[in-house]
């Protein structure tokens, strides 16, 4: 009935330097950051990217609490990766459990991957936390536009994202209502084994799909009635303009990238080849 609560990575509306940046700048910086993060192959690189991330987070005024909460879903994957590396990397043993041998090299390697994941998740979630869905789609559409000559449907992708965002809450509410309506007819969504449970979803999914198709039909007609005919000749109310802040952010990003490349050349990988 009432959808809400803070969803991880959901737009966090406070005014800040990062919020005010052009969405295209934020998308591009995020992409560059991801690449740089994987170019960096030692802990010095992390020092650079880490400082950059901390700076961005501080400037965004997003509480650390929110960002740390966002890490929760990946705790399992992270521990799994670390353990995997710990045991599967050859090298000098720390301890042994049966046939499994934990190594120093594995520990370093595991920690390295773990830190990389944490920085990655924190920084990229900053993009969705500081950019409203509309800005995000606008930005994406604009970035993809040059590729539309190569057949990338930039406008269509953005329109699909907008419509999806618009209808997610509506469909969630609808799913809740249909589920209750079927429960009023004795349907049981909670007990039984896997097969029974997936079968019990039919009375929920069929009406939900029927309704979604009807909505799509209605919406298509309403869009047509409002003179929609694709991206051709269309203008936008919201104009994207790069400001000095955006150039400043780009500048910082370039400096950060250069430093990371330097650490790679100067110090080499965290575990030098042949060190084990």
């Amino acid at each position: 009935m009432i959808s809400g609560g803070a969803i991880i990575g959901q737009y966090y509306p406070v005014g800040s330097f990062v919020h005010s940046l052009d969405p295209r700048a934020k998308i591009l910086i995020s992409v560059i950051f991801m690449i740089v993060l994987f170019v960096g192959n030692n802990f010095y690189a992390f020092a650079v990217t880490g400082v950059f991330a901390v700076l961005a987070i501080t400037l965004s005024k997003i509480p650390w609490k929110v960002l740390i909460r966002g890490l929760r879903p990946i705790v399992f994957i992270m521990s799994f990766t670390i353990i995997l590396h710990l045991f599967l990397t050859p090298g000098q043993a720390i301890f042994e459990i049966g046939p499994l041998r934990a190594t120093w090299a594995g520990l370093v390697q595991g920690m390295f991957i773990g830190v990389r994941l944490i920085i990655l998740i924190m920084f990229t979630s900053l993009l969705t936390l500081t950019t409203s869905p509309i800005e995000l789609t606008d930005g994406l559409e604009d970035i993809l536009k040059p590729f539309s000559r190569m057949g990338v449907p930039a406008h269509e992708i953005a329109m699909m994202m907008t419509i999806a965002l618009r209808f997610i809450p509506t469909l969630l509410e609808e799913a809740d209502r249909i589920m209750k309506a079927q429960m009023a007819r004795g349907a049981d969504f909670e007990s039984g084994n896997m097969v029974q449970r997936s079968k019990s979803l039919v009375p929920l999914l069929v009406p939900l799909f029927v309704s979604a198709f009807r909505r799509a039909d209605d919406l298509a007609m309403a869009m047509e009635a409002r003179c929609y005919r694709g991206g051709e000749g269309r203008t936008r109310m919201r104009e994207l303009n790069l400001s000095t802040n955006d150039y400043f952010a780009f500048g910082l990003t370039i400096v950060m990238s250069a430093l990371v490349v330097y650490t790679r050349v100067r110090f080499g990988p965290v575990i030098p080849r042949g060190a084990v």
Partner: peptide, 26 residues
């Protein structure tokens, strides 16, 4: 028995009979 608003949105079976029978079968 509770009939929700726009209850027609909850029908899902292939025939009218099956849909009405859904409750008693459950």
């Amino acid at each position: 028995g509770l009939v929700f608003q726009y209850p027609e949105q909850q029908v899902f079976e292939e025939t009218v009979y099956d849909d009405i029978a859904f409750g008693p079968k459950n």
